[in-house]
Design a protein around this nucleic acid. Structure first.
Lengths: 331, 331
DNA sequence: TCAAGATGAGAAAAGCTTTTCTCAAAGAAT
DNA sequence: ATTCTTTGAGAAAAGCTTTTCTCATCTTGA
């Protein structure tokens, strides 16, 4: 019972364990024929080295911890998938630690990870301007922050909100829209402020920004505000997330305004389930969260291997996913 | 550098490592005063035993693997959180393995988990009538399936679709609705069939079931079908998910039909972000996925400890979350 | 006072893998 | 034929913790 050990292979091949080890790791000197035979026996027997024993020996567990306080959101899941994907072919597995917003739970999880000798920790959350309720400074392993507020002098990865906003704004300008408005979320989000600044920089200082909440009804309401006052109406609306965009599109339709013929709308997040189901489907800025997760994985691994990575905030570019709500597609 | 080992504690306390071990684990015979002193030293020094070494010794890694092919969906995240929560205070950590729908990737992850000597594996997915693209039978560790199709003779946990549908139907009947309709997703989903059967059993064999797709526009369309034909109109609509319910509510509003005064609507999934933002907020059936995850965690741990759990399909009850789309709330 | 029992603490082995040393045998060169 | 070199393979230690023995010392009873 149990899994085959290197001793089983040695016995089956009629050699010593050290010879088996050397054969399998292409180490040491030995007859090529012996090496091949041992490899064959190991394969036949289904031997795979015990990672616990290797970890003990190398002081390296080939394991990292992923800490998140977001158990429902749509942001962390792609990040996690990216981390997992980046590390799996390096033989590194990922501990998932859901800590809610509970500092005590956070500490328990961090201690458990350290006990298990993780090679590093990635912290991720639901908002890039809030930090996790747990102190990760002074740990004996490297820490990388992804899509959450990092400690000073740490390596922190986020999406580039300004660049994403610029992408959307330029696209609207590129297809000939001139009267642009940005309808977005609450101003206390750093993302909101950064996107708004970039929007104004690209669209012109006079371009209007309406802050509200992250909800469809705010999209409705913003359209009402914009259309029920005097003056020129916008012909391009860049929204702070896909839900707001969804509300905007619905409100425009209810007013008989055609999207994209009369007004172009762009969302943010590229939340497929929302963007695809909007009528018309929503052009949206994608934050490349999976890519961000991959990068976080690669980075923490590099740090674990002793490579020097300059600390600081690194912003990864967004991309624009073109659907029909905007016009100007290549089709 | 590195973490303190039991040898460091022994040296600091002026005793042997075996004495330290016995002191900390409340094992063996020794002077109470010695024991207390050693414990104090260990605490001061910040000693925590190396889980790799313990794992090697006990043939137990205090680790389980969580396999999922759902990297974007909203079903697995609460399941994962539940698993993590159930196991953290047993000292068990969870490996997250995102395998997409790739059998090769699945095998790699399973092998990696076995290498790391996981005590068990939980498989979870995005659909309870599809199985993961990887064979988990004949593994040397116990496997529990949660919210995905399990192998024959395995322990499989899902939500009780029939009971959930019954809950919703009875609620509608209980508040006096008599002309009920069930608007749901594609019939090739087992969940759809099961809920429909339960709906008919509770609402009467003649009660109508409309199958379509899992999308808002289908909710719209179903309302159009129902209202644009002759005969009595429904006064209670039970929807197969919250997106459909959302479409139904919007379509009713557009027709001037009041929810909940004229028609009661109930959704399924209790997807907060959708249910809360509907106008009015949606009463919905919650599958208790976090609870399901917890149960899966407890079960796999029990199996890992050698307890006998009868194999088979276990269905965990749903609950109804009452908001305003239905009337009949206690308020 | 001597033997027997109780008590406290250390030595060693096990769990699995890898690496460094060591050693023996075979082949080559003188 | 003898010595040196090369080659092939095994022994042992390290990495950390726990448990089972074993041993020495102290106490107690006869």
């Amino acid at each position: 019972m149990g899994r085959a050990t290197i001793h089983d292979v040695a016995r089956a091949a009629g050699v010593s364990v050290s010879t088996v080890s050397k054969a399998l790791n292409d180490n040491g000197r030995m007859a090529a024929e012996t090496r091949a035979r041992i490899k064959q026996v190991a394969e036949d027997i289904g031997f795979r080295p015990n990672a616990l024993a290797r970890g003990l020996l190398f002081n390296r567990s080939f394991t990292i911890g992923l800490l998140t306080n977001d158990t429902y959101g749509r942001f962390t899941l792609p990040v996690m998938a990216g981390v997992s994907e980046a590390l799996v072919d390096k033989g590194v597995s990922v501990f998932l630690c859901a800590i809610e917003d509970d500092p005590a739970l956070g500490k328990i999880h961090v201690d458990a990870m350290l006990d298990k000798q993780v090679d590093g920790i990635i912290a991720t959350g639901k908002r890039i301007d809030r930090s996790l309720p747990v102190d990760l400074s002074g740990l004996p392993v490297p820490v990388v922050y992804a899509f959450t507020q990092g400690a000073p002098d740490s390596v922190t990865l986020t999406s580039d909100d300004a660049q994403g906003a610029g992408l959307a704004t330029d696209w609207l300008l590129g297809i000939g829209r001139r009267r642009l408005v940005h309808v977005t979320g609450p101003q206390d989000f750093a993302s909101v402020r950064e996107r708004a600044t970039a929007f104004r920089a690209h669209a012109g200082a006079g371009a209007e920004v309406l802050c509200g909440v992250w909800a469809e009804r705010w999209g409705h309401e913003a359209v009402a505000q914009l259309w029920e006052r005097d003056g020129e109406k916008p012909d391009g609306i860049f929204c702070g997330n896909d839900q707001i965009a969804r509300g905007v599109i619905d409100a425009l339709r209810e007013r008989g305004i055609r999207v994209p013929q009369d007004v172009s709308v762009i969302g943010f997040d590229n939340w497929e389930i929302m963007a695809d189901q909007a009528r018309p489907p929503l052009t949206s800025v994608d934050m490349n969260l999976k890519e961000l997760g991959k990068e976080a994985g690669r980075t923490v691994l590099a740090l674990a291997e002793g490579k020097i990575i300059e600390p600081g905030l690194r912003k990864l570019p967004c991309r624009l996913v073109v659907r029909q709500s905007c016009g100007g597609g290549s089709a």
